[in-house]
Amino acid sequence: MSAIKVEGVSKVFAGAGGQSMLALSDVSLDIADGEFVVLLGPSGCGKTTLLRIIGQLESPTVGRVSLDHGNNGDRPLGFVFQEATLMPWRSTAANVALPLEMAGVPRRERTERVREMLELVGLPETEGKYPHQLSGGMRQRVSIARALAHDPQVLLMDEPFGALDAQTRDMMNAELQRIWLENRKTVVFVTHSVSEAVFLADRIVMLGTKPGHIHSITEVTLPRPRTVDMTESAEFRHLAAELRRQIGAVQDTDNRSAVSA
């Protein structure tokens, strides 16, 4: 059963001075329930745009997107934005509690859950702090805790670990995999990082630029749970090298078309 169905989606942005630009062209994608899909591609290829369309923050110019939340009916998604997007007037704990408040979870249960989530992202002592008192990486982790708080079935993540250092990033990747293995959410995860993509994905969707389109889809069959040690394995490195080559090719054609234009 597919949880997310993207059918023939194109997106045109109306630019300044009546100049419009084609950000996505004829993208079709079926994502199965409980699948971990990674969108990979060079900057500006339309990863965020596609994710926003899937999350129904943007409507496609052509085509359609259907989201099947299964038996959860109208349950909200978990969305991790490229920027943390915390509410400056809420403390860390209150920010994480936001989706729970809106779902009408009683206060007691809320504090419990918030504590759990903050522990999960490694920030247990920051409960009372305001966002401006946190570092960029800490803010992003709070926003991840918020996205997970109401246990959404569909999780959309836009470069969630972009602001973290390599070690924390590895740790968060492992955590994310653990959470996902535990209750098999459907995840769409955007990243620039090839090794992050290989580490996490069931399937890697490579996007090309000008206009954004699906360049290739790669199944990752490495066994789970994957460990940091596995990133040194031949299979892992082979796959990563292949993907890097593809990104290089995508960017090359991009440069060439830019020159010829």
Partner: peptide, 20 residues
Amino acid sequence: SMHDLMTTLKASRWERFWRA
């Protein structure tokens, strides 16, 4: 982005106003 956040959480008009 604040509105986007509220949209992903399926906020009603009133919640959007009151919480954001």
